[in-house]
């Protein structure tokens, strides 16, 4: 069943095959949680939002139409829930505060076994800096950069997720990159 397309799995899930939907969950859980994590700033919140996204997609599975990629439907749902979460957090005064040194429990950094210890430390430092700069961007800029750079999506798919034309996506990514560049310099990104 793992070789079935997303929409084939959706069709099976619609017919009551929950294993098919479980396969969809496994297929997308990692990228979806990564997206939510970069947007929400906490792994716990990210997993809650991702879980809610899958459940809502399942709830409306009878209405899904294969006009777009399944991934854009799923990420569109997660994006809306994330923005709601950020709005609610702001309203509650909780805010999304990111520290330069992110809690290691919430981010797994893949060690380069070939790197020397000082190189590994340097890689971690750069990743921490990039992550911090990303966290400081507005949600509008962060979402397009995350979808483009971390999910590798093309402009058209991103446009479907954020409900904007490709031209808007193009200029928004450029603005986001510029903001990121400025933040990196402010944070001491001399490696640039």
């Amino acid at each position: 069943m793992s070789d079935l397309s997303d929409w084939d799995l959706v069709a099976r899930a619609r017919a009551g095959d929950t294993d098919a939907f479980a396969l969809l969950v496994r297929r997308y859980q990692s990228p979806l949680i990564h997206f939510c994590f970069r947007m929400a700033g906490s792994l716990e919140d990210a997993q809650d939002i991702a879980q809610d996204s899958f459940v809502r997609v399942y709830r409306y599975i009878d209405r899904l139409r294969p006009d777009a990629k399944f991934s854009t439907v799923l990420f569109g749902m997660a994006r809306n829930l994330t923005l709601n979460f950020l709005r609610d957090s702001k309203r509650r005064g909780r805010g999304i505060t990111m520290s330069l040194t992110r809690d290691d429990e919430s981010e797994h950094v893949v060690e380069d076994s070939t790197a020397r210890p000082d190189e590994s430390a340097r890689i971690r430092e750069i990743e921490s800096l990039i992550g911090a700069a990303l966290d400081e961007l507005s949600a509008e800029h962060r979402e397009v950069l995350v979808l483009r750079e971390l999910q590798g999506m093309d402009y058209e798919s991103i446009g479907e997720i954020i409900e904007c034309p490709s031209g808007t996506v193009k200029s928004r990514i450029a603005r986001a990159r510029e903001q990121l560049r400025i933040k990196l310099i402010e944070l001491g990104g001399e490696f640039l």
Partner: peptide
Amino acid sequence: VASAQLKSLAAP
């Protein structure tokens, strides 16, 4: 460079 660094961010 920034793009490459972003892409290197590990997934949780």
